[in-house]
Amino acid sequence: METIKIDGPYNFDLVLDRLSLDPLHQVDAENRSVFVPLMIGNEPMVAQVKAIGSTKAPEFVITGIEESFQDKAAERLGEIFQWNTPLETIHQHFQNTDLKGIFDQHYGTPIVLDFDPYSCLQKCIIHQQLNLSFAHTLTERFVKTFGFEKDGVWFYPLPETVAELQVEDLRELQFSGRKAEYVIGIAKEIASGILNFEELKNKSDQEVFDQLIKLRGVGPWTVQNFLMFGFGRQNLFPMADIGIQNALKKQYQLEAKPTLQEMESFSKGWDPYLSYASLYLWRSIE
């Protein structure tokens, strides 16, 4: 067992609320905890993260990790839950903007990463051009058919496993032919070592964009979402995202979805925390 204290604000209850939208996540809101699948080296393990503090004085207990892996697990969990991000600084940045109301409403909500970059990229591909409900259903089928379970928690299928699949294997789950090709193709890039997330993590947003955009099935929306929820980059604003468009329509009481020019105008002054503007806009309609 390990106890982690961080600077507030940090609203773990709102974190759990957002994580619970994904049926693959093992969230226990009543006990303020979530079970997190981790790959430390090549070893799968499940960490329970439980909040015992408050939004102003956040504190967490981590259990389920063998002592020899605790330091690496704590480091990875810190990345996933963005425990070192100065949320008060970000909150204050938005106090003189049009988003003040939703930042007050969702005070202390961090960007929480997907549990590993590979699953984040695959999930982005699967979710493309689907409504959220079916996107979650399709992802759940994918994981539960080809992934594996440990201590009641599901792990995404390994790249080596997906690289060996045929398009027909995913078509049986209701993947489109092209989406199946994209998912398998990306797995092959990772399994062969061509795509290395540890190397990618140290590159700039533009360098990551330039490398990922070359992959079949990866467009700007996918890269922007990956940068946010795979690597925790703080200044992304995916203007093609329907959720953000709907949230802006609600925020500014527009008759129609905003144009790109309107979105650029609205977002002036949100830099360098555009990712947090995106997150809080999503939260405002979830």
Rank of each mutant, 00 (worst) to 15 (best):
223 V>M: 00
176 S>D: 09
153 V>M: 02
201 K>Y: 12
198 E>M: 00
214 K>P: 01
176 S>P: 08
186 I>T: 15
196 N>Q: 13
187 A>N: 01
207 E>Q: 12
214 K>H: 08
155 F>A: 07
196 N>D: 15
214 K>F: 07
226 F>V: 02
192 S>Y: 07
165 L>S: 11
198 E>S: 14
178 R>A: 13
196 N>F: 01
186 I>P: 05
167 V>D: 10
198 E>W: 10
171 R>F: 00
200 L>C: 04
171 R>G: 10
205 D>S: 13
196 N>L: 06
198 E>G: 04
211 Q>F: 02
179 K>E: 07
214 K>M: 01
224 Q>I: 06
181 E>D: 15
226 F>E: 02
164 E>C: 11
157 P>E: 11
158 L>A: 01
188 K>W: 02
170 L>S: 01
218 V>C: 04
196 N>A: 09
211 Q>A: 08
173 L>E: 01
184 I>K: 00
223 V>L: 02
208 V>I: 15
217 G>M: 05
190 I>M: 01
218 V>H: 07
192 S>V: 01
222 T>D: 01
156 Y>K: 03
154 W>K: 12
182 Y>D: 04
194 I>L: 08
159 P>N: 06
186 I>S: 05
164 E>P: 03
149 E>G: 01
215 L>G: 13
218 V>P: 09
186 I>N: 08
219 G>C: 03
225 N>S: 11
202 N>F: 06
171 R>M: 08
200 L>A: 02
210 D>S: 14
188 K>H: 06
149 E>P: 01
167 V>L: 07
201 K>I: 02
210 D>H: 02
156 Y>H: 13
176 S>M: 08
214 K>R: 12
162 V>S: 14
